[in-house]
């Protein structure tokens, strides 16, 4: 019970201090929408193409909504030594890092549904499979957040966190099948696509919204879950190794 009081307060503090602040909206919402608008205008297609673009917008929204703040805030707290306060609290490291990441997961998941809300006014979303869409958005948020955590633990400066985040995020927009199908990529690039968690999430997003997935849903969920476990475990190992000296 005592650990959950700590968990809840870390989560609500982070939500208030970081995620519900205007600068985060620029990274989490405005940037993905602007990015997608550019794709939309460039493709020259009409409103009927909204459902084919929607998975990409959702994927980018989650990716930027989660990683934009987490990597920076953890690095910021580590540098200001307030993160030490959390490490010295009688709360297990696993629960502590779940508390630190829960805000980003919630924010990223909420971000993903903003484009869905907008799309609902301009196209028919009657064919969407919500039963797989909601869980996959959550899993993409978890994996992207843990990627942000992995980045945060690997750097020491705030600017490094931003640079390192972009090193992963921008290639993922093109490599993970969000807007360009993986099958359309040069064959030598495809292994890289399958080494990224968002590829599996994007495939389920396409299947859930437009029925155009290429891989079995169960395989996609399993791969995405495996990435979540792996990224969290590696981040915890790195915290124990480099932050608890």
């Amino acid at each position: 019970m005592k650990q959950w009081i700590a968990f809840w307060n870390i989560l609500t503090k982070d939500m208030r201090s970081y995620y519900l602040k205007p600068p985060n909206i620029s990274w989490g919402l405005v940037f993905p929408l602007a990015w997608t608008a550019a794709f939309f205008v460039r493709s020259g297609s009409g409103l009927e193409s909204v459902s084919s673009i929607l998975p990409g917008v959702m994927g980018v929204s989650v990716l930027f909504g989660t990683t934009s703040m987490l990597a920076v805030t953890v690095t910021f707290e580590k540098k200001g030594r307030s993160f030490e306060r959390l490490l010295l609290a009688p709360i297990s490291l696993e629960l502590l890092m779940l508390a630190k990441t829960a805000g980003a997961i919630l924010f990223g998941t909420a971000n993903a549904f903003v484009p869905v809300l907008i799309a609902s006014f301009i196209t028919d979303l009657g064919g969407v499979r919500w039963g797989s869409l909601v869980p996959v958005v959550t899993l993409i948020a978890v994996s992207s957040t843990f990627l942000g955590l992995f980045i945060a633990v690997s750097v020491s400066e705030v600017f490094e966190a931003q640079t390192f985040s972009n090193f992963f995020r921008f290639p993922m927009i093109f490599l993970c099948g969000l807007f360009v199908p993986v099958a359309a990529l040069p064959i030598w690039l495809r292994p890289l696509s399958y080494a990224l968690p968002l590829t599996y999430g994007a495939d389920i997003l396409h299947r859930s919204i437009s029925g155009s997935g290429t891989m079995p849903t169960a395989l996609n969920f399993a791969a995405l879950s495996a990435f979540c476990v792996l990224l969290f475990a590696v981040s915890l190992r790195n915290i124990r190794r480099y932050w608890i000296l």
Binding site: A6, K13, R81, S82, E84, R85, P90
Partner: peptide
Amino acid sequence: PDESNLYPELTGFQNLSFCGALYGMK
């Protein structure tokens, strides 16, 4: 610690209350 490492964005009261919560205080 040797540096005052509380949260700059929180008030004095909020900082104390948050630190209490870290130790499971209701």
